[in-house]
Simulated assay, not measured.
Amino acid sequence: MPETTVQSAPSVAAQPGGMPVLSVIVPCFNERPNVVPMIAKLDEALAGVAWEVIYVDDNSPDGTAQEVRRIAGHDPRVRCIRRVGRRGLASAVIEGALSSSADYVAVIDGDLQHDETRLPVMLSSLRAGGYDLAVASRYAEGGDSAGLPSKWRHMLSDGGIWLAQAFMPVRLTDPMSGFFMLPRSLFEQLARGLNGQGFKILLDLVLSSSAPLRVLEVPARFRERAAGQSKMDALVVVQFAGLLLDKLCGGLLPLRFFSFALVGALGIFIHLAVLATVRHSSSLSFETEQAAATIAAMVFNFHLNNSITYRDQRLSGPGLWRGLLLFTVVCGFGAIANVGIAQILYERHTAWSIAGGIGALIGVVWNYAISATLVWRSR
């Protein structure tokens, strides 16, 4: 069980030359109302510490980046990285941490729910040696998760914790935490093995280490959100499970491929359900009913992939309809390849189950590869 620190810590002096000791990485999207109070809280909590804050903004339409840059104009401790054409908390954290030259990097949400007063405690504990990673935990003794707004959020959090604890090489009471700190040099060592997708990068860091990390959990309060909307939903837990699967398979197959294949499997059930429904409620020919079921499954697969598999490149507006059209065309060619190859193998006396399975696999690989290139390409 990870140990817990004391509740206070001495200040940390600046390095020679004025280089910050600590970089606080804040991945954000639509957090403009929280920027000013967040920086004020960091200034108070980190008095006596040479620090900087690096906001990594995913091109927020509410002007988050502009607000950060306004403050940066008169406070050199504040920096902003504005990302266009890519989204996602994990990749934002990676970009922010790799842009730092400080000895230590901390990751904290920009919504004021994390208790920034824990930062000096975490920093002094790491500098004292004996630990590789400090995690602010809602569930360690003395912590508080009252900021989770509903029973549904509690269920999502508890489910993710249970799932992670079954596979993690170290025991963490709060593996879903988005508030942690580690030496920058260690982050850079682990960066090459990071998946970089999803919302829970702490798990990715822990599972990317070749040896179990020495982890210290610091009890922390999880406050109620002051402004803006939470990004936590059921899809975060789905991505969390996908990340575990990716790590267990040694990264041999991309996480997106697992997700794409799972969506495709769900699409089969949609296809059969629609086909059964129209057969019992219409007098259309089987070919017409099959076509209707196929179109329904394609639309279902597209929207689910847009919401889960390519969440960080999600299409919207006119691009959504263009993407749907391209996806339908891509899947149409994939279906032709599936049927054609399976038929050739079957005619060569391959067992129908093997021929069908190979055809389906080729269809999935085709659809995944071409969709990633044409439909959800980086913009």
Score class of each variant (00 low, 15 high):
residue 82 R to L: 14
residue 83 R to C: 12
residue 83 R to Y: 07
residue 88 G to H: 08
residue 90 A to G: 09
residue 93 V to D: 03
residue 94 I to R: 08
residue 94 I to N: 02
residue 95 E to D: 14
residue 95 E to C: 01
residue 95 E to A: 13
residue 97 A to S: 14
residue 99 S to L: 03
residue 99 S to R: 12
residue 100 S to H: 02
residue 102 A to V: 02
residue 103 D to H: 03
residue 106 A to M: 07
residue 107 V to A: 07
residue 109 D to T: 01
residue 110 G to Y: 10
residue 111 D to N: 14
residue 113 Q to V: 15
residue 114 H to D: 09
residue 115 D to I: 00
residue 118 R to D: 04
residue 119 L to R: 05
residue 119 L to T: 04
residue 121 V to N: 06
residue 124 S to A: 15
residue 126 L to E: 13
residue 127 R to P: 07
residue 128 A to V: 12
residue 128 A to Y: 09
residue 128 A to C: 08
residue 129 G to L: 11
residue 130 G to K: 14
residue 130 G to T: 09
residue 131 Y to K: 14
residue 132 D to H: 11
residue 132 D to N: 09
residue 140 A to P: 15
residue 140 A to Q: 08
residue 141 E to W: 08
residue 141 E to I: 15
residue 141 E to M: 11
residue 144 D to A: 10
residue 144 D to Q: 12
residue 145 S to Y: 06
residue 145 S to W: 00
residue 145 S to T: 04
residue 150 S to C: 01
residue 152 W to C: 05
residue 153 R to W: 11
residue 154 H to I: 02
residue 157 S to P: 01
residue 161 I to E: 13
residue 162 W to D: 12
residue 166 A to Y: 00
residue 170 V to D: 03
residue 174 D to S: 09
residue 180 F to T: 00
residue 180 F to E: 08
residue 180 F to Q: 05
residue 181 M to F: 08
residue 183 P to D: 04
residue 183 P to N: 04
residue 184 R to S: 08
